[in-house]
Design a protein around this nucleic acid. Structure first.
Lengths: 237, 237
DNA sequence: TGACACCCATTTATCATACAATTATGTTTT
DNA sequence: AAAACATAATTGTATGATAAATGGGTGTCA
């Protein structure tokens, strides 16, 4: 399978993304404070040693995510925090570089508790035949890995399972959570699963309910997973 | 108060945003199908009659929202639907221009039912003193308008109330919903409120619970609002 | 025949420069 | 004092050139 679909929009290789990432870091860390006017384009070009073209594309990228707002004559301003789109996986990726990861992880868990049970319920009602096949294959893999544990493969399958749930809701507004969840898995949860922490039975309950088309049971099962599982805080090993 | 904070990122005046909007329309409407390679930069420049600079900034904007992905030699491709960030208010604004609005409205309502009760619960627990003051002022306005109805002002206050709930959660991941909700209000719900449809008592229950710091009651009250209210489908009067 | 290294053409990526549009600020005029 | 105006600073757009990336073709060799 091509890895095209797994690629993150705006390859990290490109210059303007690297610069955007650096500016984002300064904003997210508070080095640049909210509502502050950042240096002019020419100044930043010199600081980064890049052309105006590349710098402007970086600024446009950050503008699109709600971090900046440019106006002629007045300059480019850091927008207030409530305009930052934390549900953008690229931005989330940058956030992960800053820390404090523990707080972010807990906040995300709160979001999962709100959204994921409902996503499971919708998936139970709306998943297509094709999506059910994918879900079956992925759960099968999880089941195998539960008895023959492999941390890396488990994390991958676990992530894919929850991702498929979001994709199976048949609701456009739930789709973005699939990517956000993947980013969080890779950034925070990746190394938090250990043998014995697979929660395979909780996952089985979700899987079974979705396949049976039982929305209420799927919702409850996913709630149970998020409450009972021994999801750990990220460890920096 | 300056209207700076109400501005949408990337003024609609700028050329590259206009072009991005037009390309987005073609993608969202299916005129450009998923995984399709769009014409080369030079071709598009001629089609739109703009410079490469402006076109590239437009493409970068769409890339940032998950609609496009560019690679040297191969070209710029329309990404598959599950990469489109529907939780971006600018993209949502473009979606609103396409329709079919009825389906989108219902999908969004499903999202609200998942996320808003939990947001209300978090707000009850975490709202700051300052946020409680804002919430009080806004609800007071709603209460006044309920007995002395004015459609436009009511919609504004209603929107502000729910927006404040998201901002009061103290959770970064709930913040973006504030803007998304506002966009939806302006695009879809704006003309759906009529006299008698204010649900003032349901709103009062949410407000009271949040001010009392009763998370469970706030969650339940918001659930009631979304289930019992006579939210209507958008009417095209 | 097939695998591998190499070259080539196409497309995006970046750079450099010039000019236009916007608007806060200060200045002049009434 | 108020209003109209001019100025300067900054972003917005245009243009042309060069660099980098890469799919596809070509040829070599086993």
């Amino acid at each position: 399978m091509s890895n095209f679909f797994l690629e993150i929009a705006g390859s990290k290789r490109s210059l303007h993304v690297q610069v955007a990432r650096e500016i984002a870091r300064k904003i997210l860390s508070g080095e640049l404070s909210q509502n502050e006017i950042i240096p002019s384009e020419m100044t930043l070009c010199e600081q980064f040693g890049i052309s105006r073209t590349a710098l402007r594309e970086a600024i446009k990228l950050l503008t699109s995510k709600g971090l900046l707002l440019s106006r002629p004559k007045v300059g480019t301003r850091v927008r207030s925090r409530d305009n930052w789109n934390f549900l953008d996986s690229q931005l989330l990726d940058w956030v992960a570089d800053i820390g404090d990861n523990e707080a972010i992880y807990l906040e995300f868990l709160a979001l999962r508790k709100a959204i994921e049970p409902e996503a499971a319920a919708l998936a139970a009602s709306n998943a297509t035949a094709e999506q059910r096949i994918l879900l079956s294959a992925t759960f099968q893999k999880m089941d195998d890995l539960a008895s023959n544990f492999n941390a890396e493969e488990w994390t991958e399958a676990d992530m894919e399972f929850h991702r498929l749930v979001f994709l199976s809701t048949g609701n456009n507004f739930f789709l973005p959570f699939a990517n956000v969840l993947c980013t969080m898995f890779k950034s925070f949860i990746g190394h938090s699963s250990e043998k014995g922490g697979t929660c395979i039975e909780e996952h089985r309950a979700i899987y079974t309910a979705i396949m049976a088309g039982d929305a209420d049971k799927a919702r409850q099962a996913n709630t149970n997973l998020l409450n009972n599982s021994n999801h750990r805080l990220p460890t920096n090993n």
